[in-house]
Amino acid sequence: MSVDDVLELLQKRMSDGSFIRATISQPRAKSSEVKRIKLKPLELKGLFHIQFEYQKERILTHENIPLDAIVSPLQQALEQYKQFHIELTNETMQIQISKKMKVSIKRIFLDTEKTADYAHNRVKKYALKEGVPYPFLIRLGVQTPDGKVKNQKHDKFRQINRFVELIDDTLSHLPKDRTIRILDFGSGKSYLTFALYHYLRIEKGLDIRVTGLDLKKEVIEECQTIANDLHYEQLEFLVGDINDYTGDTAVDMVVTLHACDTATDMALAKAVKWGASVILSVPCCQHELFTQVHAPALDIMLQHGLVKERLAALATDSIRAELLTLAGYEAQLVEFIDMEHTPKNILIRAYRNDKKPSQAQIDRYVEFRTMLHATPYLEKELHALLPFIQHEI
């Protein structure tokens, strides 16, 4: 079988409905940003697509490609990657493509034919289902008493479900033999705090204790009233500042959503110092680096205020993720759906692994930070935990 044969086979199987999923890995170029590509079928607006999920070192992005345009991206993948694992309804295939483009293939035919579940992709299967009344969503004004999502609340419903998906991904990283301690800094109106509690406590039956913290006294009082009325006994809301909170010495999960500017860094630093197993953070209003950035090589970009603002925000989140990595976490920047329809849709997801950084990782971080002429707040906060970093630039 040749590479062209593989291309023809994949195109045919994607078209006849027998394609279930594929994983493409082992890039030929060591410099390749995309380390792995996952493919799955998807139906959008009545048309079949293949979703490409590009997995970079710490970022996931998606592209939905119609079947009639699939040949070119598949051909590029066959040219640029060595290994393909393909699941079909009646077989699995493991394909290796050598440096000289020689194809070797291992095929395992199944005794029982699977079903390609395109229906799964026609209607989004939310963890919280439309039409099912959830008491907390009704009280928060997202649903009507019969479970219908209110017209003006569909964006919030999607955001809540996206957040629940992310929470579900964290389950394997949380303790199973004791109460799970969770803190939500800057909880605000607490749509997502209630969703987190409902999913982990009600849906999954986990032993959890959750605290939502915010500076707005009236909002906190209202949230606590709702929690009491719903008999969410292990959910509390407190008035307080992220930096001043001293109510715990160890926490399993820290959530911070839309904490402004360095308030996000305060929460991240608290999480690391507590040894939190899971950190989920959506930053907001990032001004710190905007006033610090001085990189003549980037002046073509930095001369434009709008571009400088966005670059500073992206650099801030990249620095945060890198510092978490240096502090013993597996950190990624992932897409998140934002209620206000702003570009602020990056979520920092970090799982503690206690892995020691290499000197190359340390040098890479210092070089990047020095290039920007930045003195990140989070680096200063983690100074005692990162003694191997030269903190003066």
Rank of each mutant, 00 (worst) to 15 (best):
L140E: 04
D155G: 13
S190E: 06
S190V: 08
G131E: 07
D184M: 04
R181N: 12
T144Y: 03
G188I: 05
D184H: 08
P175S: 12
Q143S: 05
Q143R: 05
D146N: 13
V142W: 11
T179S: 13
S190Y: 00
Q143H: 07
Y197T: 01
F136A: 09
K153T: 08
G147V: 05
K150V: 12
K148I: 05
Y191W: 04
K129N: 10
L183E: 02
Q159H: 03
T179V: 08
L183I: 13
Y134E: 07
R178W: 12
Y126H: 15
R139V: 01
K125T: 10
L140D: 03
H154N: 09
H154L: 14
V132P: 08
R162E: 13
S172R: 13
V123G: 00
N151S: 10
L140I: 01
T193M: 11
K176Q: 15
Q152G: 08
V142S: 09
D177I: 00
K148T: 11
V149N: 10
I180L: 10
Y134G: 07
R162Y: 01
Q143G: 08
L166P: 03
R122Y: 08
P133L: 03
T170H: 14
K125F: 06
K150M: 13
I160F: 02
F163H: 14
D155F: 02
H154F: 15
D169F: 01
F163M: 08
G131P: 06
K124S: 06
L137W: 12
L196T: 15
I182Y: 12
Y126W: 15
K125V: 11
K125P: 13
Q152D: 10
T179K: 13
L140T: 00
R139Q: 07
L137R: 12
R181W: 02
G186F: 00
R162P: 02
Y197D: 11
L128Q: 09
I167W: 01
R122N: 06
D168E: 15
Y134P: 11
H173T: 01
Q159L: 03
L137A: 10
F185D: 09
Y134S: 06
L196D: 06
Y134N: 08
L192P: 11
R162K: 10
V164F: 00
F185Y: 12
Y191N: 10
H173D: 09
R158K: 14
K148G: 02
I180W: 08
I167E: 01
Q143M: 07
V123P: 00
R178S: 10
V142K: 09
R139K: 11
G147C: 05
V149S: 10
K124L: 14
L171N: 06
D184A: 08
Y191M: 06
D168N: 15
Y134L: 13
L196A: 15
S187A: 14
Y126T: 12
D155L: 10
Y191D: 13
L140Y: 04
D169I: 02
V164C: 09
G141F: 14
K153Q: 15
T193R: 07
E165Q: 14
Q152I: 00
R139H: 00
Y191T: 14
R158P: 00
L166V: 10
S190Q: 05
Y126D: 15
G188L: 01
Y134R: 13
I160Y: 02
I160W: 02
K153M: 15
R178M: 07
G147Y: 05
I160M: 05
V132G: 07
